[in-house]
Amino acid sequence: MGILEKITRNVDNRYWNPGVGAFPVKNRYTAGVAGQQFFERLKEDSKIFGTRCKTCETTYVPARLYCERCFERLEEKDWVDVGTEGVIHSFTVVHKTLEGEAKEKPDLIAAIQIADGILIHRLGELDDMEAYIGMKVAAQFKAKADRRGGINDIDYFKPL
């Protein structure tokens, strides 16, 4: 019982933040072999590409280097242009910031199905009351000069 007794008697127990609590590090991510090519096509050609595994007939979006089911390498010939349209698989309306403050205007975030893949992205040009699962949407690209080779080269998805 010694330990429990001590804890109940310990009234001045306190937390410690000696000014070294911050962890000031950052991460830098490459897009990878498939991702690099995926974003090149997005940035240069405004196209969304997937890779298709001919064994299990799955078309991955975004394009991947390998099929996770068959564990086969997906090669150049397996790249397919899947168009820039998709269907809302699910969506959410975000009212709070990361810090828990109310947002001035809620964000519409959706899981958008394209071929057999899902892209998570913002929805735009529609009111949160108008969005529905099954809604057809299309990618709205940023102006070419503003593209950086990342998922934000698509500004948002908008209703067709």
Binding site: K6, N13, N17, G21, P24, R28, G35, Q36
Partner: peptide, 21 residues
Amino acid sequence: IFVTEDSLNCAYAWDTGVAIN
């Protein structure tokens, strides 16, 4: 080569516990 950068931006505070207190 495209990269995405992100920072954890986190801070911690620790309880000292009984003995270290």
